[in-house]
Design a protein around this nucleic acid. Sequence first.
DNA 1: GGCAAAGTGGGGAGAAGTGGGGAGCATCAG
DNA 2: CTGATGCTCCCCACTTCTCCCCACTTTGCC
Lengths: 146, 146
Amino acid sequence: MFLGEFQHSIDAKGRMAIPAKYRTRIERGAVLTRGVDSCLYVYPAEVWEAKAAALEALITDPRKLRYVERHFFGGAVECELDAQGRIIIPARYRSHAGLRAANGNGPVEAIILGARERFEIWSPDRWEAYLRESEPEDLASLPLPF
Amino acid sequence: MFLGEFQHSIDAKGRMAIPAKYRTRIERGAVLTRGVDSCLYVYPAEVWEAKAAALEALITDPRKLRYVERHFFGGAVECELDAQGRIIIPARYRSHAGLRAANGNGPVEAIILGARERFEIWSPDRWEAYLRESEPEDLASLPLPF
DNA sequence: GGCAAAGTGGGGAGAAGTGGGGAGCATCAG
DNA sequence: CTGATGCTCCCCACTTCTCCCCACTTTGCC
C-alpha cells in the first residue's frame, strides 16, 4: 500500500526520484497515466495488468470497449526505474499535471502522494488548491472507518 | 501489452518506423488490417493466429464463416520489420486511414496508438476528430477500475 | 563524527527516427 | 525485343534524444 506525501524535484531531463519506500513495489515496472483532477497516476505493473484484465468483463459493447482501449492504453506509458531509482516523466504528461518550469526546461518541484494501490504526482500549486477547494464537511459526513 | 501514443512520419516510400518498445513483440512478423473508425490495426503474428484459430469456434454457420474469412484474411497483409525497424504500409491501406500527403507522395505524419494486444495507426486529424466526437460521459458512466 | 542511503545533476556513447541512393524484379507500352 | 515505370529491398548517412554511468550533496542513523 502506498502511503505518505513527498516533495521531490523533476530535473531538466524529466527524471523524478521515486521515494525509496515505494521502489520495491515497482521493481517489475510501472505504468504512468493521466489522472483525474490534473495529476498523474502511477500503478505497479501487476496492478495495472489486473485492472486491464478486468476491463473486458466489464464492457460488453464493442464500440465502448474500443474507445476505452484507445483512451486508457493509448494514454498510458510504461516506466522503469533507472539505476538511481528514478522514472522519466515524458513532457506531455508533465503538461497535463501543470509540471512545467517557468523557463520551460529547468527543474520543477512535484508532490508525490500515496493513494493505496497507486501513487499520484501533483504540481505543488494544484495540490494546495485541491486541498483548499475540497470540503472538509464531505469527509465528516462519510461513513469512514477511521 | 501495447501502450502509449507516438507521432511518427510515413516517408515517401510508405515506410513508417515502429516505436522501439513495440519491436520485440513483432519480431516474428505482424499483420496489418483495415480497422474500425478509419484507422489501421497491427497485430503481432501470434495474436493474429490465435484470433484466427478462435474464429471457427465462434462462427458455426459455414456461409458466415466464408464471408468472414474472405473479409478478414483477404483484407490483411503480412508485414516485416526492415533493418531500421520500419514496416511498409501499402498505398491502399494509407488511403483507408486518410494518410495521404497533400502533394500525393510526400511524407505524412501518423499517430501510433497502443491498444492492448494490437496497435493502431491514425491520421492525426482523424484521431483528433475521434477524440472530439466521442463522449466522455460514456466513460464516466462505466464501471471502470481506474 | 563517520558512514550509508537517498536525492540531485550532468556528460557522453549509442540507439532511435528520418531520409535518400541504387540494385533487382515485374509490368506495360511502343 | 527494348525501354520506361513502379515497387521492394538492400544499403548508408545524418540528427536527435534516450539511457547509462559517474559524481556531488543532503539526510539520517549508529
